[in-house]
Structures are given as structure tokens and as C-alpha cells.
Nucleic acid binder design. Structure first.
Lengths: 187, 187
DNA sequence: GCCATATACTTAGATGGCTAAGCATATTTG
DNA sequence: CAAATATGCTTAGCCATCTAAGTATATGGC
């Protein structure tokens, strides 16, 4: 309050110095929301919702996976996937199929329409990324990436432990899925 | 699929190398959700919802501000603030008052109960922060902070421009509020 | 001083995420 | 093999957030 030197400077000072501790979380949240909004705006122009993007991205990288696996890769809970997939099925982006001899799992397949979105949408995400990191150098980005990864890992271990404390041994699926949200299928 | 060398290593490899571009956004989102869940778990033990925390934090730092100002400081839209404040009023954390001669603005004041939460809840956020940044050194955190700040700024400018393209000159309030979501009251 | 515009709050309704709980089907094990 | 347990999908319902649109009140320009 009542610092000298213009708005930008005040904000810079505020975030960098006046705010030592827990507000790193706020910075991260704000960045995340900024990125989300930027992509959302662009996707909306193509009639695709932000929520669907998450799942399409994974399916473009290999469809025909079970709904459960899709949840893990997306880093969200099953009900989230369930409703998104249902909605995308209605939009004609995906099909839900079962394999003979397995009446539990539902496998998600892209339709040609769903497949075709890739070429339109991927550049939008790349554009957002380019805008966001403008002016940052390689080294800074690498450091940020490393730091974020470490934080995700730290928090996943905390969460894992908290869950274990209260209840039971969390399944591998749970722990791994919780770990970071979106990575390759392991095992 | 079918990588060698243990889960942690696979994930590390995945995030650090296999994923060059837009997935920085995913890292940030995952970190944000991890931080959110960690805090939420702890707040829940004290009967406070994550949403309320956002607003309480600001009010502890100076209550009696207008609902609109509270929105700006929290970096959320008015309806979000509206419902949160209504809920907190019902819980007895805050009161909504008006000033004579102004029938538009509603000023939000902490009750003693709302005030008293500060001592219980702030340490929880500090704990989460400490867990999250465990193992990171000063320099890394400073770099991340700087990079995030730059990204927020880049994205805010993008958004500002997109809005300007379509409609009208966004008010100062809007632009500044959008800039990062939670900072000091300036001017 | 009045009318146009801007501002502040509210309402309504959508979205994306979650937890809890249910049901059906596989899998394991005594 | 049968019973117990685990797994995968679904349903129901909550929470935090948003946009769009409505209402009431201030404010500024003519």
C-alpha cells in the first residue's frame, strides 16, 4: 500500500517479497487458472469444452483403453470420467465398447470425428503455451518443471500417508494415480 | 507402456523429457490440485471448506471491505463471492453490513468467530507449504516464483487483449483483478 | 435536474471436479 | 467349488467456479 513506482512494480514486489510462505500456492493456482482460461477461450471457438480436452488428449495418444485407465491417465476420479465420456459419446467423439468375455470393463474408442479434432485443437494448446512462457528462458522453465515435479511428488506422498493413516493400504492404482495425475500407463 | 526401472523413475522420465510443450500446463494444474487437496484435507478436520479459506484469508488481512473488492482480491467473479459470503454468514463467520448513504455496496465484516479461526487455520497452510517445498532450495523456489509470475502476467495480457478485441475497453478493475487474482489493494 | 451509463449485488443455470454408496462382475482363497 | 474380497462402472448429490442476465442504485454529461 502506498508504494512508489507503478502498478506492475507493486504487484511484482508483492508477489516476490511480501509474500513468503503459503502464497506460493496462490501463484500456482492463479497460473493454472490463467492457463485454463486461455485454452478454454480457444477451445470454445471450436465448440469443445475444456473438460473434454483432457480426455481427448489422452485418447489421441492411444484409444481403446478402459474407462478406468482413462481416469488414471487423466488424474481424475471415475465419476468425472464417466460423465465426460458419456457427454462425448453423445457428441459423437467417442464410442464405448465391451470385449466378449469381459462384462466389466468398458473400452473407449475415438470416432473419426473425435480423431479429427486433434489437428484443430492441439495447435491451440501449443499457442497458449507459447504465450504463457514468452520471455522465459530454457533454464528457468527447466527449473520450474523440476520444482513442480518435486512438489507434486511431495504432496502425493503426504496424501498417500494420510490415507494410509486412516484406513487401509491404498491400492497401487490409487497411489500411483494420485501421484501426478496424467502420465503413461505403467506396469 | 512397458518401461523398465520402477514407477518413480518412469514418471520422472515422462514429465521431464517426453513432454515438451503444452504439458507444462498439466504440471501446474496437478501441482495446484495437489496443494488444494492437501489443504482441503486439513481444513476439513476443522470444519472449514476450501472455498471459505480463500475469503477468510483476505478478511483476516483487513475486513470491512466491499463484496466487490473481496472478489477482486480473491480473484474470483462476483457470484462466487456472493454465495461463499452468504454461506459464511450462515455459519456465523462474517456479517454483511451497509453504510448509511450507500445502498449499493455491502461490506463484509468478520465476527469474533470468523476472526478466531485465523490462529487455527493459518498454520495448516504453512504446513502444507512446508511439505510441498521440502527438498527444494531457495534459488529454485525463487526461479519458480518469478516464472509463474511472468506466466500469469503474459496470460493476463493475452486475456485482456482478447476481451478488448471483442467488446470494449476493460475497466482497470477488471484488468488488474485478472492480473493475478490475489494481491494488495492498490491505488 | 434528468437521462444514460456504469456499478454492485443478486439470481439462474452450466461445468467440472469430488465423495459416498450401489451394483455387477471377476478373482482369490479356504 | 463357494464364499469373501476386489474391481469397474454407475448413480446421487455436493462444492467451487463460471457466464449470462436481472435489479437496484450511483454518477456524469447535457
Amino acid at each position: 500500500m502506498s508504494k512508489r513506482g507503478g502498478l506492475a512494480q507493486v504487484i511484482q514486489h508483492h508477489w516476490r517479497e511480501a509474500v513468503p510462505d503459503d502464497r506460493l500456492a496462490h501463484l500456482i493456482k492463479d497460473a493454472s487458472r490463467g492457463l485454463g482460461r486461455a485454452l478454454q477461450m480457444r477451445l470454445a471457438e471450436h465448440g469443445v469444452s475444456f473438460g473434454h480436452w483432457t480426455f481427448l488428449r489422452i485418447l489421441w495418444n492411444g484409444d481403446g483403453i478402459a474407462q478406468r485407465a482413462l481416469s488414471d491417465l487423466a488424474g481424475v476420479m471415475e465419476p468425472t470420467t464417466f460423465s465426460a465420456v458419456k457427454a462425448m459419446e453423445k457428441l459423437g467423439y467417442v464410442e464405448r465398447r465391451q470385449k466378449p468375455g469381459d462384462r466389466k470393463q468398458v473400452f473407449i474408442h475415438l470416432t473419426p470425428l473425435g480423431q479429427s479434432l486433434k489437428d484443430k485443437l492441439v495447435p491451440l494448446a501449443e499457442e497458449v503455451n507459447a504465450i504463457a512462457i514468452d520471455g522465459l528462458d530454457e533454464r528457468e522453465i527447466a527449473t520450474m518443471r523440476k520444482a513442480l515435479l518435486a512438489m507434486i511428488d511431495n504432496l502425493a506422498r503426504d496424501e498417500e500417508q494420510a490415507a494410509g493413516d486412516n484406513r487401509r493400504i491404498p491400492s497401487t492404482r490409487e497411489v500411483a494415480g494420485r501421484l501426478s495425475g496424467a502420465q503413461l500407463s505403467r506396469k
